[in-house]
Design a protein around this nucleic acid. Sequence first.
RNA 1: GGGCAGGUACCCAAGUGGCCAAAGGGAGCGGUCUGUAAAAUCGCUGGCUCAGCCUUCGGAGGUUCGAAUCCUUCCCUGCCCA
Length: 405
Amino acid sequence: MKPIDEQIAILMRGVEFGDEQIKQVMERELRERLQEAQHEERPLRVYCGFDPTTSQLTLGHTVPMRKLRQFQELGHQAIFLIGSFTALIGDPSDRNSPRPQQTIEEVAKKSKGYANQTFKILDADKTEVRYNADWLAPLTFADLIRLASHFTVQQFLARESFAKRHAKGDPIWLHEFFYALMQAYDAVMLETDVQIGGTEQLFNLMAGRKLQEALGQRPQICLTLPILVGTDGYQRMGQSLGNYIGVDEPPEEMYGKVMSIPDHAMRNYFDLLSSFEPAQIADIEQRIATESLHPMDAKMMLARDIVTIYHDAEAAARAEAHFQRVFQKRELPREMPAHKLAAPQNIVDLLVEVGLAPSKSQARRLIVQGGVRLDGNKVESIEETVTPDRETILQVGKRRFVRLV
RNA sequence: GGGCAGGUACCCAAGUGGCCAAAGGGAGCGGUCUGUAAAAUCGCUGGCUCAGCCUUCGGAGGUUCGAAUCCUUCCCUGCCCA
C-alpha cells in the first residue's frame, strides 16, 4: 500500500466542502483512519450510494464513482450501494420540490441496468454491491422512531432545500425527512469508514456520521465532490432535467453532447470527468486564454477523452470523424437508420411514421419552417409525396437522418 | 374540525363571462449565422380529415346564446386557529 501522504494527496484531490474548516477536519480524520487501518492491516470501507431513478447512469454519477475507484486502486474496499429503498422516497437534497415516489417494481427494474454500467468505472471483482432495501425494508415503526429521535426538526429546516420551500410556503412532506435518516442508517449497517457524495449530499453524509456515533460506531469520514453541471452548462446534471450524458450512450452521441456544452462549462468537465492531470488542465486553460489553443479544439480534446474512457480510443476517433462530417462539414453521417418505403407516401405521414415527428401537426410545422430535407433539398410543401424508386435520405434539422430504402 | 388563500399547457406563471388553444419566462424544436449540437438572432411549440373541427385550465355536475373565468359538490396544497 502506498505511503499515507501519497494516499491523502490522491484522495483529497477535488474534494470540496464549501467550508475550509470541514475540509481540514475531514482530512485530519482521514489521515488518522488510514494510519489506523494500516496498523490493523485492514482496508477502509468506503461507500457511495446511488438511487435508481432511471435505468441509466449519467456522467454526473461518475464523479463520486471515480473517487471510489481511487480508493479501490489504493487497496481499500469499495461498496457500491444501490438505493433500492431510498429511491422510493427520492432524495430531496437537490431539488425544491419532492421527487415523485416510485413503486418497488419500478425501482427493481431500474436497478438492473445499474450494476453493469457501474463497472465501466469500478473494478467489478473488488466491489461490494449492496441494496439498501435489504436492511431498510425490514425496519419496524419502533425502529424508525428510535432512529428519528437522534435528529431535530430544526436541523432539517436549516437545510437549504427545505428552508426555501418552508419560506415559500411550498409543501415539505414528512416522509422527505426520512431520506437522510435512511441514508444515515446505510452507513451504520455498512459500518463504513468513508462515504463519498456530491456536495449537495453533505447533510445526508453528516447524518450518517451522527447516527454512527450515536449508535456506538466510529463516525465516518465524509468526502464531497463538486457537482457536475449538465449539458445546459448551468443546472446540475440530472436525468429528470434532460441535460445529461449517459455512460452507456453510443460514442457519437456522447461526443456530440460533450461538444454541446457551453464553453464556460468546459473546466468543470475537464476537472471532474477527464483523464487529464491538474497540471495539463491548467496548461490547456492557459493556452485558451492566450489564444494559442482554440476553445473548440480544447472541447474536442475533452470529448475525445471522455468517449475513450467509456468506449475506447477507436470509438472516440470514429465519433470525432462523425462530428466533423455531420456538424462541421454538414455532410451525411456514415450510418443512419433505414426505413423501408414500400409505396409512395405523403411527406407528413412519412415523418410521423419514421419517428422524426411526434405528430402530423409537428411534422407540418417542421416543413413550413424549412427543417425537412430530402437528399439535401428543402421540402417546400406539406403535399409532397415521396416515391420509393431509389434510396433517399430524409433529414430533419441538422442531426436527424433516416435512409429510405 | 374552522377561517382565509390557492390548484392553468413539459415546468414556473398571467388571465376572473365572449377578442382564450389561453400573456410572459424557462425548456424543447426549426431557420440564419458561427468555432460546436456553443453564443447571438429570428420563428415554432395541443390534436386532426387544418380558411374548419375536436380536446385542454384539479374531478364531477349546473347556470348561460357563450365558462379557465359564475354556482354546487368532491379531491389536493399553503397559512392562521383548534
